[in-house]
Design a protein around this nucleic acid. Structure first.
Lengths: 251, 251
DNA sequence: CGTTCAGTTGAGTTGCTTCAACCCGTGTGG
DNA sequence: CCACACGGGTTGAAGCAACTCAACTGAACG
């Protein structure tokens, strides 16, 4: 069994993910409700600023969104990526302002759903409610996993973890080119903002991983993971357990 | 206006918090449903291990719980504290295993609610559903705020932020001794696991804050914040905005 | 071609960690 | 009642991982 086969096996059940995402009834109702709210955003577009008024949620159909926060001095931290099929609600506890900035990382189609409509949809569609709950739980688990790395891990471990997470999520929604081969619409700067490192150090770390044969990362983040196990060891994860934890519908 | 008055004003609406927590109908139904599932845990008790089977949620009535994750090498990161009146669901995306370890930080009373019962309660009590949603949103915002500090801030800023967060949350549930004076059931080691620092450096940082007159932190984490504004500057937050973001019902 | 922008690499700096010693309040057993 | 061990907090010294700064490369684009 090649490393690639193994990762498919580990991260696998790609079909489940696709199925979940494409669940016919939900998808149809969603599409009907959202059609007229679709927007195509070009790379770099900012959907909402941190602290701005919001009364909407955002459902990504294609492309990536980043949810980021900044310190007054300008340092940015990306707290989540929103991938196709996922919905993100940027509303704080006051119900009126966004606690993050949402930015398109590439050409991205988004449905903008106002809170009331979303609430109605959730109450009308049990399947939607369930699948959203699942995604929510997965997102929470992922976020905790990342906090663990932000707080207690080396640069190598953080980057390794990020790559594994990307791979699993991409596999789950069927956006891999081949097994363990995929593209993420990020520059090193963004990866740095995600992992809590400087872009310079991200660069060094990626190159080191490359030199050791664990991955290839060509210029614009076309990634290929050669040795998942070594990467998992660096990241300090059990692939099987991680998948069950952070990928919705991977039970 | 003294700093204390000001923080009450900023973090304020203590009454809202109490009211939210004590909402008569919800509280009564909850109590009825939970009475027989109450457990009193002694300090250090571990409710669930990371990776263990769970089909329950945990509702804290008094005391503190820590939700923590560990790396294989043993480094721990506390991802959330669960305070009185809050509910924590440790279930991962597979719906069967816990993605965190839950530990009592002092004598703590917890209601152990099985998932099915909880689902029933939520569907039967709209008020509960709403207040839980609010708390959920607040928790998500807090977690992002912490990720920002874990990724991009100095030790001083991380500790300052943690103290402000404690103060706001304690004020909201009415567990302050006086304004800006409260106790957290943590050692420096735990604070370190929360802020992603070494306990040694937490010690140095607390002492520095003390020497500069911003706080007093006597032996077992009886805290008093003298200069909230200086602390807020260090943490890089706007107190007003932060409260609206992370405290449920602070709108 | 010149300009720009992302990535790469080296050199020097620094903030936090680790290690180790020490202090002190508490608990325990002789 | 003292002796002693223990665990948390405190402090100093030394090391190192990641940061900053700065120079260079190469691809993309007008």
């Amino acid at each position: 069994m090649s490393p690639q086969d193994d990762l498919i096996h580990k991260t696998g059940q790609a079909l489940d993910g696709v199925q979940l995402r494409r669940d016919a009834r939900v998808q149809a109702s969603l599409a009907a409700a959202l059609d007229h709210t679709m927007r195509v955003l070009s790379k770099g577009t900012i959907l909402v600023f941190e602290g701005a008024k919001v009364d909407s949620l955002f459902h990504v159909t294609s492309g990536w969104l980043a949810a980021a926060k900044s310190l007054p001095e300008g340092e940015r931290q990306i707290v989540e990526f929103v991938l196709p099929g996922e919905t993100y609600d940027p509303t704080s506890a006051d119900g009126q302002t966004s606690y993050v900035e949402l930015e398109a990382l590439c050409e991205t189609t988004v449905a903008i759903i106002d809170a009331a409509t979303w609430a109605r949809l959730l109450s009308e569609l049990p399947e939607l409610r369930d699948s959203e709950r699942l995604r929510d739980v997965a997102a929470r688990a992922r976020q905790s996993e990342r906090m663990l790395r932000l707080g207690k891990s080396s640069a190598e471990s953080r980057v390794a973890y990020a790559l594994i997470e990307f791979c699993m999520r991409m596999t789950a929604i069927g956006e891999t080119d081949r097994d363990c081969v995929f593209h993420v619409p990020l520059g090193q700067q963004q990866l740095a903002e995600y992992t809590g490192l400087s872009s310079v150090h991200v660069c060094r770390t990626l190159r080191r991983l490359g030199r050791n044969g664990l991955i290839t990362a060509d210029d614009h983040m076309d990634l290929e993971i050669h040795d998942v196990h070594a990467l998992a060891v660096l990241a300090g994860v059990d692939l099987d357990a991680l998948r069950r934890e952070i990928i919705p519908g991977a039970a």
